[in-house]
Computed example of a mutant assay.
Amino acid sequence: MDALLKKYDSLVLNYNKVIVESFNPVDFQEYNEILFSAHSCAVEGNTFTVAETSALKEQGLSLKLQNKSLYEAHEILDHFKAYEFLFNNLSQPLTEDLIRQTQQILTQNTLKFAKGFEPGEYTDTQMAAGDTVFGDYKTSIARMPSLVAATQEAIDKAELHPLDISARFHQFFIYLHPFPDGNGRTGRLISNFILAKFNQPHVIIGAVEKASYIEALKSSAKHKDTQILTAFFAETSMYRMQQEIDQKKNLTRNFIMSFDPPKKNK
């Protein structure tokens, strides 16, 4: 794990130099907001592409929806609002109220319509997802204050690697599963909020990584080893950072501009 995190830290330094520092900060935040919102919602089944998510960010509900539901549009728009609520004030401490506010904003226009629950309220019934039945919901909710306090203490002490703090929170939160809906999206938002406090890049998990993501969560819980999820976070983040670095370099080096007429085949 130490070797992987050292490799991650080295890539972060290069990523900051090549990508982050070349952006206007406002533009870079919007880039991340769109990318993260599209992919995090896609993990839950939303069909908006990154390009369509970008158009929705620009045009809002005036966007002409083609083969998309109003529900999906609201899901993305609410994700934007939750993202901005967190990332426009990184100095705010992690509290139980902050997590509930995030989930409330995230599900404001979908939860009551889809499941009849009030946004921001903890579940009042047993929770399950896929083939996983989570622990007793009353016990899980009672554990939330301890999770929040322990996470904030880890943030304050900064003895663990930021990826490890983020992954540990994510693992424990997902398995507490305190809300009737939006646990995955809320967990990914808060995990990246933690990373941003340490000036670390986002861990963006897309639909293509969904199976590996779920397997990492299950393996971490089964073996009581959060380093499995930390490794998944590191590898996922490194892959995206390297992709963006390579894309910038390739487009810079291999750009061809010609106004010559096309060559005729002999």
Rank of each mutant, 00 (worst) to 15 (best):
G45C: 06
L86I: 11
P119E: 03
G116Y: 09
G135R: 01
T49H: 06
F48G: 02
A38T: 05
A82L: 12
T107Y: 13
K64R: 14
I155W: 12
T123P: 00
L86R: 15
A114G: 01
K68F: 08
T102V: 13
S91A: 13
A149Y: 08
A38C: 07
N88Q: 07
N46D: 10
L61A: 02
F36E: 02
D97C: 12
L35N: 10
A154D: 01
A114M: 10
K138S: 02
R100P: 00
D124A: 05
I141S: 02
A158C: 13
V148A: 10
M127C: 04
F113C: 01
Y137G: 01
Q101I: 12
V133A: 09
E84D: 14
E153F: 12
A42H: 14
T53I: 01
L147I: 04
P145M: 12
L94N: 11
E75N: 11
V148N: 04
N109V: 08
V148G: 08
T110A: 02
Y137R: 04
Y137H: 03
A149D: 02
F48K: 02
G45E: 06
K57R: 11
T125C: 05
Y137K: 08
H79Q: 14
K157I: 13
A73F: 10
T139N: 01
F134C: 00
Q92C: 01
E153D: 09
I34N: 03
Y83P: 03
P119C: 08
I34L: 06
F36N: 05
T102R: 15
N46R: 09
E96W: 15
L86M: 14
S146E: 07
A38Y: 06
F85S: 04
V148E: 05
F134E: 03
C41R: 11
E84F: 03
E72K: 09
Q59D: 04
K68S: 11
Q108G: 10
Q66L: 13
N88H: 10
A51K: 14
L98D: 01
G45W: 09
T110Y: 12
N67A: 14
A42G: 13
F48D: 00
Y83W: 13
I155G: 11
K81N: 13
T139V: 01
P119Q: 09
E84N: 15
E153H: 14
R100M: 12
E84S: 06
Q59I: 06
A154C: 05
K68L: 11
A55M: 11
A82K: 14
F134Q: 00
Y122E: 03
L56K: 08
Q104T: 04
I155L: 15
Y137W: 10
A73W: 13
A114D: 04
